[in-house]
């Protein structure tokens, strides 16, 4: 979880700008309790927080773009290795996970709506559902990782070429109708799995951070923090969550579905 410090705190700030506890203690009607001292109006504050979140997502795009560049180059160089590597992934798990993440995105969008319309109980429900779906996603990811670990498909010293040199010995490769790869091609599957673990790992790290914040949000939502007319934090977290969803949509297409025909 390399970018966790910035991530958590980064979103924390946006959280705190919505945090009534830290706000200026002004009783003036034009000064809602959540308005920080240096802003002129709540609108300005929400605008600034929203824009900051978008800029943060911009940096996230650039963060992933390095990996996508690497992916694109090596996929073109080592296409056969990438195909064989992707055949080791389970489309069923992948599709399930995509659906799970899309559903969680939906519940998150609903949560934002609940927050904006002041429905506290529904908000808590939506956030909890999002949390559970996110956990489910990570669980499935864990199962997939475990499988790779068992088959020695984790790049590094224990990496095994068995499934690619002798596809008949491997159920997944047999099912996909793989033919044995020559040694040099088979070696390049390690590049595929490096990228697979990097990209899904970075994505999972973002999920974990998101789940931590979600847990915190559920507690605060139960206390009614986000249904009192100030939905900025839920909204901004929603942006983050949807961004994770979008990254996965691409990862799914690029890593799982390289060539199934």
């Amino acid at each position: 979880m390399p970018d966790s410090p910035a991530m958590t705190h980064g979103t924390q700030e946006l959280a705190n700008s919505a945090d009534p506890g830290n706000a200026a203690n002004s009783a003036h009607p034009e000064h809602p309790p959540y308005l920080l001292h240096h802003f002129e109006s709540a609108g300005q504050q929400a605008d600034a927080a929203g824009f900051a979140m978008w800029l943060f997502l911009l940096t996230e795009v650039m963060f992933f773009s390095g990996l996508f560049t690497a992916y694109l180059i090596y996929r073109n160089w080592y296409y056969r290795a990438f195909v064989a590597g992707s055949h080791q992934l389970s489309v069923v798990w992948g599709t399930t996970n995509t659906a799970v993440l899309i559903l969680s995105s939906f519940t998150m969008a609903m949560a934002v709506w609940c927050s904006k319309t002041g429905r506290r109980r529904e908000l808590t429900l939506c956030l909890t559902l999002t949390f559970l779906l996110g956990l489910g996603f990570l669980g499935i990811k864990g199962i997939e990782y475990h499988e790779k670990f068992e088959k020695h498909h984790v790049p590094g010293r224990h990496y095994s070429l068995q499934s690619f040199l002798y596809p008949d010995s491997d159920a997944a490769a047999r099912a996909a109708g793989d033919r044995p790869l020559p040694l040099d091609d088979a070696r390049h599957t390690e590049v595929y799995f490096s990228l697979y673990f990097l990209m899904t790992g970075m994505h999972a790290a973002h999920m974990v951070i998101g789940l931590c914040i979600l847990g915190f949000m559920i507690l605060r939502a139960r206390a009614g923090a986000y249904t009192a007319g100030h939905a900025t934090f839920v909204e901004n977290f929603g942006l983050y969550w949807h961004f994770i969803d979008i990254v996965w949509i691409y990862l799914f297409a690029l890593l799982y579905l390289i060539s199934r025909h």
Partner: peptide, 8 residues
Amino acid sequence: QAILNPSQ
């Protein structure tokens, strides 16, 4: 390349 990565 043809000697070291022949399948390419």
